[in-house]
Each structure stands twice: as C-alpha cells, then as structure tokens.
Amino acid sequence: MNRRATIRNLGFVTSAAVLTPAIFSNCSSDNYSLQFLNKREFEFIDSLAEFILPETERSPGARLAKVANFIDQYIAVCYSEDQKKDFLEGIVNFEKRCKDQFKRVFKNITADQKGELLRDPDIHETAAYQKMKSLILFGFFTSQQGMNQALRYVAVPGGYEGDISYTEGEGAWAL
C-alpha cells in the first residue's frame, strides 16, 4: 500500500518536472554533459525512450530514469567504433524516414504518428532499431527508478522462499 502511494506521489511531482524545459532539451539540469551523442541525437533517443516506456500512474518513464543519459555514456564506453557508427546511422535513417513521412523530427510528431512509425516492420525489424530498443529497455529496467518503482528491488533479501503467492500489479523482482 505504502509503495503504491509513494509511486503516485513521485509520479505527481515528477510530471511537473518533465515540463521543465531544461530537462527536456538537454542535461544541464543534472550536470550531465554528453559524451557521445550530439544534442539532436540525444533528443531523439530521449523521446523514443519515453514513448516506448512512458511515465504512467504506476511508475516513472524512461525520461525520469535518465535512460538517454545512460545510453549516451554506455555507447561511449562499451561500443566499438563500428558499433558507434552503426548506431548513429540508425538514428539518421530513422529520422529520415520520419521526416519523409511526417515532415518533422521524431520528437515533434504526435503520439499516433509515433505509434504508426514504430508499428512499421521496415522500422522495428531493422537491426539498428532493435539495438536502440534493447538499450532503452536495459537502461530503464536497470536504473534506480526502473528497479525500485517499475520493478521491485530488495538489496538484502535475507533468505529464500520458493512458493509465495503473486498478484498481478505487484511487479517482478528487479534482480
């Protein structure tokens, strides 16, 4: 019960924060400086991540979990030069497709248009998109917000129980 209430309260506070332009346009508000992506690429990843894993009443979304920050630094440190090149090319191709279809970049199209785009197999079946999406999921579900508020995180379980009842909505263990 308490957990639910906490999540709702957090949700309320943070949805106000999302509207703050500083967070929406760059990372200066949390002193994060981009390591790999440029500002436009960052904004693309940020809006894609939030569209795939949006903030809801139940839990925060990718933006609050700073998934785009994570992806930026993760690629900088964990990707080879070839993988980095492929990743950027993937963004270019995606945005080109988006502009051809809707005359705007991804972050500025409507939710319906975003949905239409992501349902298109020519988009979601590409290796580049699959990579982006798996990084977004990984970044979110391993973040402090994702692990504690979307999932359930217990640092020190204390023991093991093999058969406890589960009711939908409780959330999967984060680990």
């Binding site: 894993l53 839990s59 992501l118 579900f141 589960y166 939908e168 999967a172 263990w173």
Partner: peptide
C-alpha cells in the same frame, strides 16, 4: 520466471508495454 527482456505480444511501446514488462 522470465523478466523484462522477454518477448511479449502486442505493441512494443506505450503504457501497456511497460506494465507488461514490469510483471514476471
């Protein structure tokens, strides 16, 4: 029980998607 990295049915984005992946 499988976690958030499993395959699920339906749209691969949005509130339902996130909630489904948050369940075991």
């Amino acid at each position: 029980r499988t976690g958030w990295n499993r395959e699920v049915e339906g749209d691969q984005f949005g509130p339902d998607y996130k909630h489904t992946l948050s369940e075991p």
